[in-house]
């Protein structure tokens, strides 16, 4: 068994896939950097090469369609320990047997692959749901997020089209990077000395626009009054809106 160790990025993973077929040495495993190799296993460190990654990406698109490429990216983002094995398994069928088994749910690996993808896509949707903007004193709309998977880039098109006429900044407080949209383009940024609270991302009052508090108060009050007291059901509430999101929610902070 040979371990192909990549640098933890998606292009790195694709480069490792390239190496596996280039060296044509099976059985192989692709492992992320944090995995320590077993005692009697050979480990090869894979350098990330954009042209290699590109060729694999195009290869997948050619054999299985563009949508399949997307699916690999989604499953990769799950960061599940078994994700690389599942992807390699499906790629082997795709490249060697020229068979796209990604739709065959009777294969257990494909079923797991599909379930991982679903988890990631659900997290994307939850960002659509639970992200909250606050307006800063200089008029920028700021939203801190901390998704379970690194899916912030996948949400940009949604927020860009929905809030196309307001400058916004969405920041992942766990992975410490974010995106800023200036009404024209979206660009990646990092903030070294953030003015907001590091974990929850809440802004101090003096950094907020003058009527921000008033609107937050309105929303909290609406949230309270729209509930029917006779039907109170905190369990159901937590089930739909898990507690890990509460620190960013205006109505639950």
């Amino acid at each position: 068994m040979i371990n192909y160790q990549y640098d933890g990025t998606f292009p790195g993973f694709l480069s490792a896939v390239f190496e596996v077929w280039d060296r044509d040495r099976f059985p192989a495993r692709i492992v992320p950097p944090e995995v320590a190799p077993g005692l009697f296993e050979e480990t090869l460190e894979v350098k990330t090469a954009d042209d290699h990654a590109d060729r694999v990406w195009k290869g997948i698109a050619k054999a299985g369609g563009k949508q399949l490429c997307q699916r690999f990216m989604h499953v990769f983002l799950s960061r599940a320990p078994e994700a690389e094995d599942l992807m390699l398994f499906i790629l082997k069928q795709l490249f060697d047997s020229k068979k796209n088994i990604a739709g065959d749910l009777s294969v257990e690996a494909v079923l797991k692959f599909t379930q991982l993808e679903r988890k990631v896509l659900r997290e994307v949707h939850r960002l659509y749901m639970f992200l909250r903007f606050e307006q800063t004193a200089d008029g920028i709309w700021f939203a801190p997020v901390s998704p379970k998977y690194d899916v912030l880039p996948m949400t940009l098109n949604h927020f860009k089209s929905r809030f196309s006429d307001q400058a916004w900044l969405i920041y992942d407080t766990v992975r410490k990077y974010g995106y800023y949209y200036d009404i024209k383009v979206v660009e990646e940024i990092t903030i070294d000395n953030p003015a907001f609270e590091k974990e929850t991302g809440s802004l101090p009052t003096e950094a907020q626009s003058e009527d921000e508090q008033q609107w937050q108060e309105m929303w909290r009050s609406y949230f309270k009054h729209i509930a029917i007291r006779e039907r109170a059901n905190p369990r159901l509430q937590r089930q739909f809106m898990p507690k890990r999101f509460w620190k960013h929610l205006t109505e639950k902070r």
């Binding site: 659509y128 929905r162 307001q166």
Partner: peptide, 21 residues
């Protein structure tokens, strides 16, 4: 142009104390 968009799948934004979206 302007503000907003509607997504065909629909999006819930919060859940009230009675568990309704």
């Amino acid at each position: 142009g302007g503000l907003g968009s509607a997504v065909s799948a629909g999006i819930c934004h919060s859940f009230a104390d009675d568990g309704r979206c």
